[in-house]
Simulated assay, not measured.
Amino acid sequence: MNPQEQKPKVAISVGDINGIGYEVIVKALADKNILDFFTPVIFGSTKHLNFFRNQLKDETIQFFGINSADKAVEKKINVVNLWKEPAQMEFGNATETSGQMAFESLEAAAASVKNGDCDVLVTAPINKKNIQSKAFNFPGHTEYLGEVWGGKPLMFLVTESLKVSLVTQHIPLKDVAQKISKEAIVEKVNALNDSLKMDFGVRKPKIAVLGLNPHSGDNGLLGQEEQEIIIPAIQSLYEKGMLVFGPYAADSFFTPSNIGSFDAVLGMYHDQALIPFKTLCFEEGVNYTASLPYVRTSPDHGVAYDIAGKGIADETSFREAIYMAVNVFQKRAEYKELTSNVLKTRELKPERER
């Protein structure tokens, strides 16, 4: 089958049941035309889902219960019911039960992708604190999937016009400087470069690297990391033929002209890149985990306890996360096909003696 004709199975984990996960899932899938592009498989509870369907007052939304993901049916909103009697939702509260259910949904959904029953994973938001347990001892989805799927995951926040990634991810700000190294920057840029080619179809990626300190260190006046670490890393990558530039001062970088000049931006730490990204692209932004053997996306927002259960959550980012997962899945298939059909050298057989 042509990669563009594939209809992937999208595994969906429901996140924290006391947040807005279920609501944005139901709203995103309410448009029947969306099922022309993929087959959803939700790992959660039809009882929970029905609450939000009723809230929308849309009886045309129907959930199709299945025992396992391999039984999913096209044109249906498939639901693998993980709990016969699911816990009552307590909107706005971070409970131990909601954390446990978030993990169980994530675990089952991730396993369905790894074993081939589903093709991609889209995750609704979790509360990073109440999900913690002996089974889940990770800062977030990204690190967990790196463990269970294998690989070195790269957090990649993306829209069509702006894509940002990070050298350091979920660590305290006081630890950032000591985690910045030439090797870490080179590794992240290489991963970014590969993802842009394989997952987004960019033939020759152009990547901007931000500095760590104010004004990129002001030639060493405000810090030595740019001179000693970041610039040597950029130079080594550029010498290998990669289009990598910087370091740019973060406070003045995110202008329309700069954004339009690069395919991706690498920041040094979480808030440096994610504050401008979420300010500029909040409704349409998608969190994509690159450099893993399987595709995973999520919306770029959290559990939003303050509006949970009120019926006012915006589903745009979750819908974009689904479309992004499907698009990346197809791009990877195209890339694999293109790179596997290159001309191969043949060993010449000696001519027969006459």
Rank of each mutant, 00 (worst) to 15 (best):
A233Y: 07
Q88K: 11
V244S: 03
E283I: 01
E320I: 05
I322W: 02
K152S: 13
K75Y: 13
A233L: 11
R354N: 08
V148C: 10
K240Q: 15
A28N: 10
T123P: 08
A111I: 11
I180G: 03
I126Y: 03
S68V: 11
Y238A: 15
K206Q: 11
R53C: 09
F254A: 07
G44I: 10
I307K: 00
S216M: 05
F43G: 02
A308C: 10
V122I: 10
F200E: 09
C281E: 15
R296L: 06
M198T: 14
V286L: 01
V176P: 00
M89F: 05
R296A: 02
E337M: 06
L237T: 11
D70E: 14
T168G: 00
L49D: 10
Q132W: 02
V41D: 07
V286Y: 00
A290L: 07
I131H: 03
Q169V: 09
M198V: 13
L237N: 15
P8L: 07
A109N: 06
S181L: 01
L274P: 12
P256N: 14
S257I: 13
Q55G: 04
L274C: 12
S112E: 14
Y305E: 12
P299V: 14
I229L: 07
P350G: 02
G302V: 03
V286N: 01
Q6R: 12
A72Q: 13
I234F: 00
L49V: 13
M101E: 15
L35T: 11
Q272A: 03
G65E: 14
I322V: 12
T279D: 04
N127F: 05
V80K: 04
Q4G: 04
K152P: 07
W149L: 06
Q235H: 11
F91N: 05
E85T: 15
K331F: 13
E283T: 10
E90T: 08
S181I: 12
D194V: 05
A273C: 11
R354T: 05
N258H: 09
I17T: 05
A313V: 04
A264L: 04
K197H: 11
P40H: 08
I126V: 09
P40C: 06
S45Y: 04
A249C: 14
N115C: 09
E347R: 07
A308F: 01
S165E: 10
V303W: 01
I312C: 09
A321H: 06
K129S: 08
A102K: 07
A110E: 14
H170L: 12
E23R: 00
I259K: 09
F245I: 06
G19D: 12
A249W: 01
K310N: 01
L343S: 10
I307E: 00
L154P: 12
N127R: 01
L280N: 06
F318P: 03
V189P: 04
V244I: 14
I12Q: 02
S257K: 14
H170D: 15
Y288C: 09
E23D: 10
F156V: 11
I207P: 08
D199R: 07
I185L: 05
Q235M: 13
L106V: 15
F254P: 13
G92K: 02
E74P: 05
N33F: 04
Y294G: 08
V189I: 13
G92C: 07
E104L: 14
T95C: 03
P86G: 06
A72D: 15
P247R: 00
V158A: 15
A108Q: 13
A313Q: 04
S181M: 03
E187L: 03
D251N: 10
H141A: 05
